[in-house]
């Protein structure tokens, strides 16, 4: 639970800050002028802070939505991401956030209304539908009880006819979705690795079975489901483990509820990888047969092809190939 809340002086009176403070009456509030004083300094240990992250409440004053490169794989022709929250409840060893941010504190931007303005503006700039991805710098749902993000943004997106939202998650905290009518232009995307991999690398994440149950509930209620088989981890019994995972996911999931399935092999910007490797020198994943190419650490080309090809073949049994997308390295 949150024990320390750092609060920018400028958001002290913001209604969303007040709501959050009311949820954590025991938390100690420490004032700061700007979140960067707490979040950005060098000489912090992401690994150690993960033991007990604090919450930082701040206002995002720089760019609020960002274009997504085509290699992302899913979405439309106009894709953006936006981050109301930096960092994640979970502690996945393959996650690039560990290398991207100097701090593991949860940094929440309370000025949702400013995000909305930019989203409206971007979606009105073209007749093409715009896609907005919310789970890039955090899990979209895992900290819903703190942020109220989905509860706020789903009604907002419901009113936009030209905008899609993808919530990407490993959480089973889906009540915020179950308690409302499914949105026509929303995808709830669940990320999976086989349970054997998840146990070793996805610390604090609900079990694969629990997530599948949460996903099936939403599908039954009419929510469109995305499957993010990303990152693919080259491992012993690769084919058997992923075959079992897909069987568990797809056996009870009606095909018409599946919006998309994306595949992406483990990859990471080299600079992030080096930092993370320093934090976790004992992690076997980082001793895998990887190579650095074009500023990215990834499996060798043949390995990546083999992993993806195997999964494509396994997936074709369950889902139309037109719904399967590859995220490029």
């Amino acid at each position: 639970m949150i024990e320390i809340i750092y609060m920018e002086d400028g958001v002290r009176e913001h209604p969303r800050s007040r709501q959050i403070l009311a949820r954590f009456p025991q938390a100690k509030v420490l004032p700061c002028t700007h979140y960067k004083e707490v979040f950005n300094p060098s000489g912090q240990s992401f690994r150690l802070q993960k033991k007990k992250p604090a919450l930082i409440l701040a206002r995002q004053t720089s760019k609020l939505i960002h274009p997504i490169p085509p290699s992302y794989g899913v979405g439309g022709t106009r894709n953006f991401y936006f981050s109301h929250l930096l960092n994640c409840l979970y502690d996945c060893r393959y996650c690039f956030l560990q290398g991207m941010y100097p701090s593991a504190h949860y940094l929440m931007f309370v000025n949702f209304e400013d995000f909305e303005e930019e989203i409206v503006s971007a979606s009105q700039n073209s007749e093409e539908p715009s896609w907005f991805f919310s789970g890039y710098d955090c899990d979209s749902l895992a900290l819903e009880s703190v942020t109220g993000f989905a509860d706020h943004f789903l009604p907002f997106f419901k009113k936009l006819d030209n905008a899609w939202i993808e919530l990407r998650t490993k959480s089973v905290a889906t009540r915020v979705l179950r308690d409302r009518e499914p949105l026509e232009r929303a995808v709830v995307a669940f990320s999976f690795t086989p349970q054997e991999i998840s146990t070793q690398l996805e610390h604090g994440v609900p079990s694969v079975d629990a997530r599948i149950r949460a996903m099936l509930q939403l599908a039954e209620l009419g929510w469109k489901i995305g499957l993010r088989i990303d990152p693919l981890i080259d491992c012993t019994d690769f084919k058997d483990r992923y075959a079992k995972l897909f069987e568990n996911i797809f056996t009870d999931l009606p095909e018409h509820t599946i919006h998309s399935v994306s595949l992406g092999a483990f990859r990471m910007p080299t600079g992030f990888f080096k930092k993370i490797e320093k934090h976790y020198p004992e992690e076997p994943l980082f001793a895998s047969d990887l190579e650095s190419k074009g500023g990215v650490i990834a499996y060798r080309e043949n390995t990546e092809k083999r992993l993806k090809h195997t999964c494509f073949e396994l997936l074709e049994k369950w889902v139309s190939p037109s719904k399967i997308f590859s995220c490029e390295t």
């Binding site: 024990e3 100690k28 700061c32 707490v38 912090q44 802070q49 701090s103």
Partner: peptide
């Protein structure tokens, strides 16, 4: 200013 990250279990109040 410095903000020593508070990652330990203890009973001390935390203040500025």
């Amino acid at each position: 200013c410095f903000y020593p990250p508070q990652i330990y279990d203890h009973t001390f109040p935390v203040t500025c």
